[in-house]
Amino acid sequence: MEVEEITIREKVKDYIQQATFIDKDKIRDDSLIFKEGYFDSMGFVLLITFLEENFNIKTNDSDLVEENFESINSITNFILRKKNN
């Protein structure tokens, strides 16, 4: 795993832990954070704002699909894809 990917993953994980008050150990990288109800719609909007501001990416309407946000893994991959485009 590249250093950049590890940094992104940790930052995302820290943010999710702070935003949801859920113990960091309980959220695995493949936990389905929306399906399991950790985030509501306001939480989702806040997450998007966090990603855009911290990783200097722009989210488009077409990006808002489950595959990009369902877990820490998918969010990390989404950010990496965005940054490499």
Binding site: F34, D40, F44, D61, E70
Partner: peptide, 9 residues
């Protein structure tokens, strides 16, 4: 019908 909450536009 998705697990993702709606976003506002």
């Amino acid at each position: 019908f998705s697990n993702l909450p709606p976003v506002f536009t």
